[in-house]
Design a protein around this nucleic acid. Structure first.
Lengths: 209, 209
DNA sequence: AGCCAATTCACCCAAAAGAGGGGATTGCAA
DNA sequence: TTGCAATCCCCTCTTTTGGGTGAATTGGCT
């Protein structure tokens, strides 16, 4: 038996589910549920008192969004691990939650074995997610294999997206200012846009850059 | 027994290792090694003939870099899965390889069980990586918990990084043009920079945005 | 109650950058 | 040999940007 306990707080607005999780988590060696809340606001209020090591959090909550909650909690208590538990395997919400500081992503259909596995990995300093989620996460930053832009154009649009001016880009690439302008014109015509902002957002949306 | 075989190509410049992998992979049901190469250039040349479903690739190779190899292979054959096998758990190289299109990351110390697990996950359309790697991948896009920028400033710098002009931002946020300018001035003074480009690159480097 | 930070807005100015138009050359690859 | 990529040049006009200076309002923390 261990000399320490990992304190767990559950945030879930469905009480059937939170009861189930409490039961399951309390059954895991070294883990104990110290509190259950329905809203992010409540966790944040009581966090100093509860002193959790791990928070299991639903993303679809009344009031403050789960992602915003994660951000605020991690800002004040960066050492608390946050495991997201949700039904939606929506790419964007996964990405947002992980960016905000979650260290894992569990489906609501997960059973005891999966929860145990996730806890173990997180305790060892890793992150937990199913391989399907991992695929989505990777997919979210993979570039498109089919871009209408040439290598040079992609390079230049990338620099533009970093806020560089035409002349900075020209210097950096060792080409003339007019050449950069020329490339930009071609980029705009290929993407059917006529401003930097549109070119960048389209290119990012389509993962050309 | 299955009616199909998954064709595997191994790219590894150390022949002891490639022999070991060949042996292990051939022992896995439904998988067969159809070729072994020492360089990316060779895989690419023979890829039409080999018709692999999966490529196990080392990143530290003579000639073309593994990452560039992945990019080229995925561009021509997006359906081929590429599993990176490497010693280095360097954050940047992991991220580069996965961005380029790899769907998994295996350590060279991995044994049969782990290879089998990785293959299985990949075949199911997932991605494979250890939880430690997953943590690094997540870490690479997590925002800093301690930014000198306020919420509004972060919001505005993010829009700037998308190529928006002050007036576009003003419209989007429903505030005056001069207010946007005001925020920008504060951002510049906090970050000790005086151009968009510097602000964006610093903020990205420090993960403020 | 008082202070500070965040957010908001205004006005002035000069330099730089952006977007669009035109046209031209080189070199490689299908 | 036609086409595309990449390079460069010229002209014009409008918008953007960065800096200076100052100030009102709000909300939270002490």
């Amino acid at each position: 038996m261990s000399i320490y306990e990992r304190r767990v707080v559950i945030v879930e607005d469905n009480s059937e589910l939170s009861n189930l999780y409490s039961f399951l988590v309390n059954g895991i060696n070294n883990y104990e549920v110290v509190a259950v809340y329905r809203k992010c606001e409540d966790v944040i209020k009581e966090i100093g008192h509860d002193r959790p090591d791990l928070i299991m959090m639903d993303l679809e909550l009344p009031g403050m969004s789960g992602t915003e909650g994660i951000r605020q909690i991690k800002k004040k208590y960066p050492r608390i691990d946050i495991l997201v538990v949700t039904i939606h395997e929506n790419d964007e919400s996964i990405f947002q939650a992980l960016s905000a500081g979650a260290c894992g992503y569990l489906s609501k259909t997960a059973g005891l074995t999966e929860i145990e596995k996730a806890f173990e990995q997180i305790e060892m300093g890793g992150a937990y997610m199913t391989s399907r989620i991992a695929r989505k996460v990777i997919g979210s930053f993979q570039k498109s294999y089919f871009s209408p832009l040439t290598k040079r154009e992609t390079e230049i649009l990338t620099l533009i997206s970093k806020g560089k001016t035409y002349s900075m880009i020209a210097d950096e690439l060792g080409i003339a200012n007019d050449t950069v302008k020329s490339h930009i014109k071609n980029i705009y015509s290929k993407l059917h846009v006529d401003t930097k902002a549109d070119a960048i957002s389209l290119a990012m949306k389509e993962k050309f850059i």
